[in-house]
């Protein structure tokens, strides 16, 4: 093929072959810090290869692997494996905003624990408003293919009850967050594709497309995520339900490092059809604290008062 390119000297051919083989390896390391064009410029300037033809060929032949990740699945896996502590506590506010209406505020706190066996448990408890006060949602996601277990404690009926964890499409406490969004979604549940790189408000991000392997396994037909390479947090996610236009968008408004872990402190989910918005603001986030494992049990789900002492202990109140 190289012999067919006119105007390429044997010297240039040799250089091309040599660097052509190196480029995928080099770019993997370089592009972690530099954008696509920057990297190209870096390579060219570094090796004084200013030939126009070379640029064209490099662009055409080697544009695909020019990322820190070989493919979308690798990036999705990296996002999934993002360090987030062995456990975490967070408290904050969920504000439902709709034009022409008074904002509705939900105050809540959450506990999460990554278990040694790879399972993950979480507990969400609402403090406000009064009609859902003390309502708790306990979720256990399993590393294996076993279906998620989920229980809800409703103070009105004074007992915990198992609920269907296969529920995906319902809105969580009237917000723009669907039940599927709350659940652990395994990387293998979607086909991932790296689309390129884009900036979002001046922050560079890798574009990741995720399409469910089994369309029945998700309420979304497609997701496009803007992954921040440094933190591996999705700064923006567009959710599709068929068609070319997203129906929902989540945006990170503030991303902050807490105890060494990148943490979304402010975010918003926007229903792009009716412009209803759900703002999530974290006031306190604590990682790797002494959270008892049995907190993630029906026992504690039915006993919200116990959690108050745990929160006081871990936050040093």
């Amino acid at each position: 093929m190289l012999n067919n390119i006119k105007g390429l000297s044997s010297y240039e051919r040799g250089i091309f072959l040599f660097f052509g083989a190196l480029i995928p390896i080099l770019t993997k390391h370089i592009l972690y810090k530099y954008s696509f064009l920057n990297a190209l410029f870096y390579i060219i300037m570094e090796y004084q290869m200013k030939t126009k033809l070379f640029l064209i060929i490099v662009c055409a032949v080697f544009s695909l692997p020019l990322y820190a990740y070989e493919n979308g699945t690798e990036l999705a896996q990296a996002v999934y494996d993002r360090p987030d502590g062995r456990n975490a506590f967070s408290s904050g506010l969920m504000v439902l905003v709709e034009k022409g209406h008074k904002p509705r505020v939900r105050k809540l706190y959450t506990f999460r624990e990554d278990r040694k066996n790879g399972d993950m448990a979480s507990l969400i408890r609402f403090e406000k408003p009064a009609d859902i006060k003390n309502t708790g949602l306990l979720t256990v996601d399993y590393k294996s293919d076993k279906e998620t277990d989920q229980w809800i404690f409703l103070p009105a009926i004074k007992k915990a009850r198992r609920i269907s964890s296969s529920r995906k499409g319902g809105h969580f406490v009237g917000s723009d967050i669907l039940y599927e969004d709350l659940r652990d979604r395994k990387v293998s549940a979607d086909k991932h594709r790296l689309l390129g790189e884009k900036s979002i408000n001046g922050v560079k991000a890798l574009l990741l497309e995720s399409i469910p392997v089994d369309p029945d396994n998700s309420v979304y037909s497609k997701k496009i995520s803007w992954i921040h390479p440094k933190s591996l947090v999705a700064l923006r996610v567009d959710f599709y339900q068929g068609g070319n236009k997203p129906v929902k968008r989540t945006l990170v408004k503030k991303l902050e490092k807490k105890q060494g872990y990148w943490t979304v402190m402010n975010s918003v989910a926007i229903d792009l059809k009716n412009h209803h918005e759900t703002h999530l603001r974290m006031d306190k986030v604590l990682y790797d604290k002494n959270i008892p494992s049995d907190l993630f049990s029906l026992r504690y789900l039915e006993d919200p008062q116990r959690e108050i002492q745990i929160i006081r202990n871990i936050s040093g109140q």
Binding site: P103, V105, I200, V203, H228, L235, K253, Q317
Partner: peptide, 29 residues
């Protein structure tokens, strides 16, 4: 280590700040 990705650009979305005035993250006994 703070990254602010977007600001409030909708007038009405800022309204929620009002609703948060009296909120406190302290848990009472």
């Amino acid at each position: 280590d703070i990254i602010i990705v977007m600001s409030d650009n909708n007038d009405y979305t800022s309204n929620y700040e009002i609703a948060l005035e009296d909120e406190s993250d302290e848990l009472n006994a």
